[in-house]
Design a protein around this nucleic acid. Structure first.
Lengths: 131, 131
DNA sequence: ACGTCTGTATTAGGCCCTTAATACACTGAC
DNA sequence: GTCAGTGTATTAAGGGCCTAATACAGACGT
């Protein structure tokens, strides 16, 4: 996994793990990969992975059964709340930033429109070399 | 100024300084406060402020005249480009995050709508009608 | 009992960030 | 020349992150 050098790795792991739970890559009640296995997959130290998992646990998104492993919470309501929370955070940060640039609501909407299409182009089409 | 403990201070300063230039709090060609003065205002060490300013300079947003002080670039085109760049970055990060949550364009628009109003309520308590 | 799996805790070291204090080089005012 | 102000560079100290290696505690299969 690629990490942003200007942000703590374990913070980025919390985001990634949360996302996996929300989108169902890690379904409710399922067993998580072990700390050591996760560390290998993500290219980080087991301690760093554990730090992220500890935070996830603190937020009630998973629980550890010391000898059996770690499991995603089976409270789908909690997961739905997480989804809303992550969406709100993303939106709020976007709003803070564009308002800091003194943009109005309508301008922000147009901006989003424009960039969304750009993303679509980049994802579906192969960027052509040259120019 | 309030800092996010999970992000490097000088990175946050770069964002704040860029924002000030874009919104005209630091107009094109104007003289910036000295390193020591800025450090006092922001509650950081002069070295930290200087690190952020060095990055700003590297990006061509200001220049230093060693004994006279530091000045915002007078190339308004560069500032306009910065404004667009910051807006794009904000939008792209938002889009990446909501797409990571498997949201569609329409859902993202609705989310933005909802949160924008929430911000208005929290910030102004009495959102202005009309415009 | 033994080996293996799980999570958990500890210790050490390297690295960067941040603060702090200091020194240097240059300009302008007087 | 002297003083004040500017950016710049250096050194030291403290702290947190990340890595690495190791050790501990409990459950399972054989």
């Amino acid at each position: 996994m690629q990490f942003d050098p200007s942000t703590l790795i374990w913070v980025q792991l919390v985001s990634e793990f949360s996302r996996r739970i929300v989108v169902g890559a890690w379904p409710p009640g399922s067993k998580l990969p072990g700390v050591r296995e996760l560390a290998v997959e993500l290219g980080v130290n087991p301690n760093t992975a554990q730090r992220a998992l500890a935070e996830l646990e603190r937020e009630g998104l998973c629980r550890s059964e010391r000898t059996a492993g770690r499991f995603v919470t089976d409270q789908t309501a909690r997961i739905d709340a997480l989804r809303a929370e992550l969406a709100h955070e993303a939106a709020d940060e976007f709003i803070d930033r564009v308002r800091g640039l003194q943009m109005r609501h309508e301008q922000a909407q147009e901006l989003l429109e424009e960039r969304w299409n750009t993303h679509d182009d980049r994802q579906h089409n192969q960027p052509q070399a040259g120019g």
